[in-house]
Amino acid sequence: MNKKEYLAYTEKRAKRSNTVVNCIKAFLIGGLICAIGQGFLVLYLYIGVAEETAKTLESVTLIFLAGLFTGIGWFDKIAKHAGAGTLVPITGFSNAVTSPAIDAKSEGFVMGVASQMFVIAGPVIVYGTVASIIYGIIYFFIMK
């Protein structure tokens, strides 16, 4: 067996995760998180918060809860099953900020906690904002 054949052999025999089961779990948990978000939105609107503010509060509430769940050690237990179901909603972003922050406490609050917060959030913000700048420039010229 040469290198190429060996790689093909190991690729082939390596069991993949059960995609169907994973997808069902991701669908149910991801959908549920969004529905819970909708619940908060309805609640905030019900108590008379303005629509834009209510939407912002909805995100902030989910970020708060995901961070709390990360801190008490529940988030990764749910994520083990949910996969993309907890990753893709804003909860995944919150977990990606909170988990390295908690983890890096042993390296101090400046170079540990604060710098590690950006490990995954940094790239998300950088590429998100750069994409929005490009869109903004295009939009500017279309508007003209």
């Binding site: 990764d76 749910i78 994520a79 083990k80 977990n95 990606a96 983890d103 590690q116």
Partner: peptide, 17 residues
């Protein structure tokens, strides 16, 4: 885990291998 992979509380799925 801290050195090679993810923070401990990071929510991730492991592959069967």
């Amino acid at each position: 885990e801290r050195q090679y992979r993810f923070p401990l509380e990071y929510g991730s799925q492991r592959t069967p291998t």
